[in-house]
Write a protein that binds this DNA or RNA. Structure first.
Length: 512
RNA sequence: CGGGGCGUAGCGCAGUCUGGUAGCGCAUCUGCUUUGGGAGCAGAGGGUCGCGUGUUCAAAUCACGCCGCCCCGACCA
């Protein structure tokens, strides 16, 4: 069968790259590890920004912007934080170039007195501002978010999933006490969960990260974990309760109502362009990307069948009228986003380009549609019937009237499909470490592409050296601890790592 | 940074072992035909064969060095 993509999901990593390229989302840059985000990929990011930004504002936060450069001394203040990021920091040391022996080199006389780091995250520089902004309990809480780029010098990069420079939003808040800060941490975790499930149609499991997976400097880290179509877990958003670690390091204090000086309790939380990689691996198929309507830059793309003949004009006129009608309608609480693709390339080529890009509804209109007052269209989420592409004709008025409901249905159906896949691939019946080894093939690579999902098991929540030992045993199986699901203990029983009675459930999976 | 693979036209690849001056499919351009749909025929354009140095009469092919990409590790959102 002819597919829109040359590589199938059987070769998952290659398939992923093919989608990124063939769906016109992004391409590698001349700088190793960075990426050029092309209009279609950027359009998806803009949709995510719009939807998540609305949630961030609806929960009382304000956007602001802090600098890209951070004095080196700032990052050194919080011990764990430094340790966490030291290995992947980009540094600015000079402010001028000079030509020496015909080569442009950093001018030795233009060395910065204090080197600057390119932010890997902004806790320290925002904390510095907070220390000046906050004086009294009346100033609290401070609820700030910023949309920014950050740089982490990664060893191994993949477009969207892990790039040296990536885009994200980072929320930073300061509170009078731990209760309020923890509440904020959980509130934003829930916003990420809802954003992932409702807007991105990506089912996730929200929960607390085990101690060894915590953000450097955090008291507690929470995440949402999504299951990709190869069974691996993707951390798609994180929310951290930072306690007073950063406020103590940066002197973020306030006077309480009794006049005493106290340290603030702070939080931070982020969602990045990695989410786009999650969309690909959650919804993509062997014909390319499939976009949930809520995050599709164009929800309906109309391809006119042009033949360089007089009737082209009528087809185009019909198309323009259709655009006007559809874009006046609402779906998923927003105006429907429609495109009439008038580009002068072969109609068939256009159709397959939009299939690869994952436009939810692809409409084709030709002279006969015009004459009959109808449209022919395909649903990208149900593109094929067996091997054949499934397109259907519908009276134009009926089509226009049905679009809002259909787009909403597609949003739900993509979510349901992914939800079923995730739910049916989380096993709770694996109770011992030897069963875990047997399931994941004892760490060998010869599991021959067989789908391996996640394991949810009870554990005794070991700490310190005992936790490191568990981590090492899992590493041998290429497994990691993902999170402790927030929905309580379901697997329970005895600890899968042999530590006695289980205290809570833990998710175990291979991960990105 | 370690182990493996790879780098030849926009994309996918052959040619490399055994050195002789670059090819195939798709895409692109032109013309004609076709027209409910991933069209047919004919012609054309496009490549410092990743980069450099060496060996040789001659290098995509051999040697050495470097760079980049992919997979698996280490690290991580």
């Amino acid at each position: 069968m002819q597919r829109a993509l040359s590589i199938s999901r059987q070769n998952f990593p290659e398939w992923y790259q093919a989608v990124v390229r063939d769906a016109d989302m992004a391409e590698p840059s001349p700088v190793r590890g960075c990426m050029i985000i092309k209009p279609w990929g950027w359009g998806i990011w803009e949709r995510m920004q719009a939807l998540l930004d609305a949630r961030i504002k609806a929960t009382g936060h304000e956007n602001a912007y802090f600098p890209l450069f951070i004095p080196l001394s700032f990052i050194a203040k919080e011990a764990e934080h430094v340790q966490g990021f030291a290995k992947e920091m980009a540094l600015v040391t000079h402010h001028r170039l000079k030509e020496i022996d015909g080569k442009l080199v950093p001018d030795p006389e233009a060395k910065l007195e204090e080197p600057l780091i390119v932010r890997p995250t902004s806790e320290t520089i925002i904390g510095d501002s907070f220390s000046r902004w906050i004086r009294s309990h009346r100033d609290l809480p401070v609820l700030i978010n910023q949309w920014a780029n950050v740089v982490r010098w990664e060893m191994r990069t993949r477009l969207f999933l892990r790039t040296s420079e990536f885009l994200w939003q980072e929320g930073h808040t300061a509170h009078a006490n731990s209760e309020e800060a923890v509440e904020e941490t959980m509130r934003m975790l829930e916003q990420y969960r809802a954003f992932a499930e409702d807007d991105v149609a990506m089912p996730v499991i929200a929960g607390e990260k085990p101690a060894n997976e915590r953000f450097p400097g955090a008291v507690a880290t929470y995440s949402i974990e999504a299951m990709m179509q190869d069974g691996k877990a993707l951390q798609a958003g994180t929310s951290h309760y930072l306690g007073t670690h950063f406020s103590e390091a940066q002197n973020i204090r306030f006077q309480n109502d009794s006049g005493e000086l106290q340290y603030c309790h702070t939080t931070s939380w982020g969602m990045s362009t990695r989410m786009i990689g999650g969309v690909i691996m959650t919804h993509g198929d062997d014909d390319g990307l499939r976009l949930p309507p809520a995050i599709a830059p164009r929800q309906i793309v109309i391809v006119p069948m042009l033949r360089d003949k007089p009737e082209d004009a009528q087809v185009l006129e019909y198309g323009h009228a259709l655009v006007k009608e559809l874009s006046g309608k609402f779906a998923l609480d927003e105006k429907i986003r429609v495109l009439l693709d008038t580009k002068h390339i072969k109609s068939s080529e256009k159709r397959w380009n939009w299939v690869r890009r994952g436009a939810p509804i692809i409409v084709e209109i030709g002279p006969r549609d015009v004459a009959n007052g109808q449209v022919t269209f395909m649903r990208r989420d149900m593109l094929r019937d067996g091997d054949k592409v499934k397109s259907q004709a519908m009276a134009r008025d009926e089509f226009v009237a049905k679009m809002p409901a259909l787009l909403e249905e597609m949003q739900k159906s993509l979510h349901a499909e992914a939800r079923t896949r995730m739910d049916s691939n989380i096993r709770s019946d694996i109770k011992t470490f030897s069963d875990l080894e047997a399931y994941f093939g004892a760490g060998s690579d010869d599991d021959a592409g067989e789908f391996k999902g996640w394991v949810r098991a009870g554990w005794a929540k070991p700490e310190g050296a005992a936790l490191d030992a568990v981590d090492a045993r899992l590493k041998a199986l290429k497994l990691t601890l993902r999170n402790v699901p927030a929905d309580g203990m379901k697997a329970g029983g005895t600890c899968i790592f042999g530590g006695g009675d289980a205290k809570e459930d833990i998710l175990i999976a291979r991960a990105y």
